[in-house]
Simulated assay, not measured.
Amino acid sequence: MAEKLRMVLAATPSFRDMVFGAASVARLEALGDVVVLDDPGDAAALTAALPGADVLITSWGATPLTAGVLDHADRLRLIAHSASSVKHFVTDEVFRRGLRITQAGQAMAEPVAEVSLAFTLSLLHRIHRFDHQMHDGAWRDDAPPQHGLTSSQIGVVGASRTGVEYIRMLVALGAEVVVYDPYLTDDRAAQLGVRRIALDDLLRTSRVVALHAPTLPETHHMIGARELALMADGSSLVNTARSWLIDSAALLTELQTGRIDAALDVFDEEPLPADSPYRSLANVLLTPHQAAATVECYLEMGEITAAEIERYAAGEPLEYELTEAALARMG
């Protein structure tokens, strides 16, 4: 490396402690000087720190990178986001100026997929229903039939990063997996060991339906009353992706009949209100939008960020670079 980099790290102290462990901090410091900003949403502080900076490391709550902010970024070439989605702060101005962007969302794929798998197994074996019953003092009260994973068809909506990790886990455990994703090719499906299928057919025939689609205009409420009605009696729905994908009112209505079960980690309103009807339903398993929140996931986000900046400094291809076209297809 011809010269040391100047990096600006905009992240709260708690985020830095959680994501940037000693190893990733050492890697960054070996690359050059790191200027730390404690408030990632402070546009004035970022504007003051950007002159002379080569790399901007962003985090949760990043301030939008408008023309007014970027006008002060005279040397900036790389934006390394140490979390997942960049849509809340990356503007058209970033691409107009030819800035490169990378992100660390891959770290979240495996833990979220693990939770989706845990949800799937719990729903198949009705663990959530038995848990509710036993807390209420009952013993083996009526519940829909239990099923094994290897005798079940699992439908996956969206072969995203997380969707692919979930698929790999399912296939390794011997499940039959079908996938709906308009971008999934036959060759890629064969590599994953899955079968492509139309959404309506997936809903009709799958014992568990797991959502892993991105947030796009065309995916808003892609699962509504009509789609839920296609699901077989006793089947289940898993959502660790985004509440954007489901018409929540239609889902609640369907769940209140007891005809299907669900496991949900994401909601239209977060925190989920204390009086939410979801909380009283024995056929629903709930977690508080924590699917990715493992210690290892957060530390890997920091490691990915440091590794991407190392690649940039060495003139090597970035592993997780985002193009404008790719960003348009991502949630």
Score class of each variant (00 low, 15 high):
9 L>C: 08
19 V>M: 10
24 S>G: 05
24 S>F: 00
25 V>L: 14
34 V>M: 05
46 L>M: 14
62 A>K: 10
66 T>R: 11
72 H>K: 12
79 I>T: 02
80 A>R: 05
86 V>G: 05
89 F>L: 04
96 R>P: 09
97 R>H: 08
106 Q>C: 05
107 A>C: 02
114 E>L: 11
117 L>W: 10
120 T>Q: 10
130 F>L: 14
136 D>M: 10
140 R>I: 14
140 R>C: 14
144 P>I: 08
154 I>W: 11
159 A>C: 07
163 G>Q: 07
165 E>M: 14
174 G>L: 14
175 A>C: 13
175 A>W: 15
181 D>K: 09
184 L>G: 09
187 D>T: 11
193 G>A: 07
193 G>H: 06
198 A>M: 06
209 V>F: 12
214 P>G: 04
214 P>D: 09
219 T>E: 15
223 I>Q: 06
223 I>L: 15
230 L>S: 07
230 L>F: 07
234 G>M: 10
237 L>A: 02
244 W>G: 03
247 D>F: 00
247 D>M: 01
259 R>W: 08
261 D>S: 13
268 D>K: 13
268 D>Q: 13
276 S>I: 01
279 R>A: 09
279 R>Q: 04
290 Q>S: 14
308 E>M: 05
309 I>C: 01
312 Y>I: 00
319 E>R: 01
329 R>W: 13
